[in-house]
Amino acid sequence: MARDGARPAYDPAGHDTELRAALQEVRTGRWMSMRTLLERTTPWWQWTQRTQVLAAAAAGTDVVRAWLAEEPHSVPAAVMRARVAVERALRARRESHRRTHQLWIEAWDVSDAATRAAPRDPVPWICLLALAQLDRRQLWVEHRAAPPAPMLPAGPWGLLAEADRRDPYNREAHHRMLQFLYAQASSERLAEAAGFAHHVAESAPPGSALHMLPLYVRVERYRRGGGRPAALDLHWVADDATREAGRAYEAWFERADPAERSPVDLNHLAHALWGALRFEDAARVFEAIGPYYTPLPWAYRAAEPGDRSEAAQIFLQARARSRSAAHGPDA
């Protein structure tokens, strides 16, 4: 149990100690620990999560290039090359970098090559799906495929289907689809994102992290509205928000393998349950989080959105309030 009042730490590896060790090596420009870790990573959920976190650390280094120079036929290295290229392209778009288009095309090329190098792996298809958000006008044919349900818009559904075929209900693949819908930037598109989130959550099996999708859309709706923290409080006590938080708790948190719960999902659920005044349930989620909080969604409540220091303080306040309500002031 995390000590009450202990300062939370942001660590992208969360409770994954093996991943944390590999990340430390990657940040210093060494790739052997990454290779060893990925060689013994077998479940697709864990492979997807670890390659994503490693790519975020490797994107500012030449570590994957060095790996490929030593092992040019390594399939994991080819997948990591795609991951890193996509991470760089997305960062360039966020920073409005002049090389964004060039990095996008380069990332598409290596991701497409990775689909052939690793034909059973969902990650190369997730990479292509992640890049779809850069095509905001949907000029590419593969980004305006017919949807699987009438209330959904045209989009990169074929890419999502390819990822889903290899790893049904893959968490990141569906979040990348949400990001594509967000990138269209209109309030109408956000309604479509909400429709997609509910459509997926209704069909997801018990224990799937996809039951969390409606909570992410709800946070995005608030973020785009530019509301203040007081408005966010009212946002979560609405009946539909309370129901969404309760469904996510029951269908995901209570049914999922604890090892598969991602830190960012746990933090979004704790935030939703606390906002919905479901303190006993929130207290249980906070205990599962332990010391590894994530700045989002807490930073959206900060006076200056994105302030990580204030986000950590808000997390502490929410944790203390939930524990106190659930177990008494001496908890």
Rank of each mutant, 00 (worst) to 15 (best):
A276F: 11
A6N: 00
T242P: 00
Q49P: 00
H143V: 06
Y293K: 00
P263A: 10
R189Y: 14
E280A: 13
R189I: 00
V79W: 04
E310P: 00
E254D: 02
R255I: 04
A163E: 12
Y182R: 13
H101N: 11
R228M: 12
A325D: 04
M212N: 10
W67Y: 05
R81W: 03
P156D: 15
F315D: 12
A82Q: 04
G14Q: 14
L131I: 06
A276R: 06
R81L: 09
A118M: 04
D121W: 00
T115L: 08
H271C: 13
A145E: 14
M80P: 00
I314R: 15
R189P: 00
A201W: 07
W47Q: 01
R94V: 01
L159P: 05
L37D: 01
F253H: 10
N267W: 05
G158T: 13
M34H: 01
N267K: 02
R144E: 05
R255S: 12
T242A: 13
L19H: 06
G275Q: 11
D135C: 11
H143F: 09
S33G: 03
H268M: 07
L37S: 01
S208W: 12
W157D: 11
W274M: 04
E172Y: 08
V200Y: 02
A13I: 13
Y216Q: 14
G60T: 05
D240M: 03
D4Q: 13
A154T: 07
R50E: 01
A9E: 15
F315L: 10
R27N: 11
Y10H: 14
R120S: 08
H271S: 10
A276Y: 12
A9C: 12
A163F: 06
R224F: 09
R228N: 09
W104N: 08
W67P: 01
S96H: 14
R166F: 05
E188R: 06
M32Q: 14
R81C: 02
A204Q: 09
D307V: 05
A132D: 06
R165F: 03
A191M: 07
L213G: 02
A145S: 09
E18T: 09
R319D: 14
D257G: 06
Q313T: 13
W47R: 06
W157K: 05
A149W: 07
V123K: 02
A6Y: 03
C127H: 08
R137W: 01
L134W: 11
Q138A: 15
A132K: 04
E310Y: 08
C127T: 04
R3P: 05
R189E: 12
P122K: 04
Q179Y: 10
E280K: 05
R93L: 05
L273D: 07
L181M: 15
Q102V: 12
A82I: 03
Q24F: 02
R166K: 12
A59H: 04
L213W: 11
E244V: 11
A299I: 00
E162V: 00
V264G: 02
R323W: 15
A326L: 10
A238D: 10
E87L: 01
L160H: 03
P148C: 08
P168M: 08
W236D: 02
I289F: 09
G5T: 09
L19T: 02
V285E: 02
A118N: 02
E87K: 04
L159I: 10
R7D: 08
P156R: 14
E162A: 15
G246W: 06
A230C: 01
G290W: 06
V141R: 09
T242S: 10
H97E: 14
V64H: 05
R228I: 09
P258L: 11
A173R: 03
D16S: 12
Y292T: 07
D239E: 14
T294C: 09
